[in-house]
């Protein structure tokens, strides 16, 4: 009798152990699959609140094969660069800057103006970037012709302030196509994309599309694109927006463009967030 009872106890113990093991595996799998999306939502929410450094910034833990297949867009890469020792202007000797009048201002007001190459047009938008005429020291050209003619180790892109009327998702999709073309032309380059800058309260009163929520929505959509494609995000919005999401009046000349001192601050900001080529 006693032997029979002991046999049954063994069976129950084994069944309970098996259930516990299966439960543990299930719980781990759930966390593994859902954790990455939570990370994205946390990062996007942090953008909205102006906080750009996630709580555990740095390289994401390498996911398992199953997780990687399920969330391949976000595996192993995080687009935010932690602040580090600033590089000097020599870092930009093999860099190209692509963008609108804000980059033109950066070019004319900082020492990288004479070090890097500049493919800028005050009027540049995500939609017009490839067809707009660009003035360079060697004459007029187009973006793709210029990128076909020379290889760079770093590409910096900033545009958006001129064209925020399209829905954020559509704008980001168009931006993604443009960035893909740029990346294809410069396959060895590190891609840095600078966030759409804030505008002053007065500028917003003149142009509704410059509103805080609209710019934040566009930057959120842009962030997802960058994360999915392995491009780095430079949070120039977070750097220059005040507590209400506006560009302070003492920092700008017309609600959008920066003072010389603030262009220098932008330069210092990007110097402090670089990846070794």
């Amino acid at each position: 009798m006693k032997r029979k009872h002991k046999g049954r106890a063994d069976i129950w113990i084994r069944v309970i152990a098996l259930i516990a093991t299966l439960a543990t595996i299930g719980a781990v799998a759930y966390v593994q699959f859902s954790g990455t999306d939570s990370k994205l939502e946390e990062a996007v929410t942090n953008l909205e609140s102006g906080i750009t450094t996630p709580s555990d910034s740095g390289t994401e833990p390498a996911p398992s094969d199953d997780a990687e297949e399920a969330s391949s867009s976000y595996s192993g890469f995080f687009p935010i660069i932690d602040e580090s020792n600033p590089v000097d202007k020599s870092y930009f000797e093999d860099a190209v800057f692509i963008g609108d009048s804000l980059l033109n201002g950066l070019k004319l007001n900082t020492e990288i103006g004479t070090v890097a190459d500049w493919l800028v047009n005050d009027d540049m938008t995500v939609g017009s970037a490839k067809r707009i005429s660009i003035s360079t020291p060697s004459g007029s050209t187009t973006l793709m012709d210029a990128l076909a003619a020379k290889k760079y180790a770093k590409v910096y892109v900033m545009m958006g302030i001129n064209d925020l009327t399209a829905p954020a998702k559509d704008w980001a999709a168009q931006y993604e196509e443009l960035l893909a073309d740029i990346a294809k032309a410069q396959p060895d380059a590190i891609m840095y994309v600078m966030a759409v800058m804030p505008a002053s309260e007065q500028a917003v009163a003149r142009r509704e599309s410059l509103g805080v929520q609209n710019i934040v929505a566009h930057n959120q959509a842009l962030f997802k694109v960058l994360w999915a494609n392995g491009y780095y995000y430079l949070d120039t919005w977070g750097q220059f927006a005040d507590l209400h999401g506006y560009l302070a009046s003492e920092d700008n000349t017309d609600g959008i463009h920066l003072t010389a001192a603030k262009y220098k601050e932008m330069y210092d900001y990007i110097c402090g967030r670089t990846i070794e080529a």
Binding site: K107, L108, N109, T110, E111, G113, T114, P137, T253, D254, H257, T259, A260
Partner: peptide
């Protein structure tokens, strides 16, 4: 002037004027 900044000292000026 409403918008003129500081004197350009990064050597960019000559390049801008070709």
């Amino acid at each position: 002037f409403t918008d003129v900044q500081t004197e350009n000292t990064n050597g960019q000026a000559l390049s801008v004027y070709g």
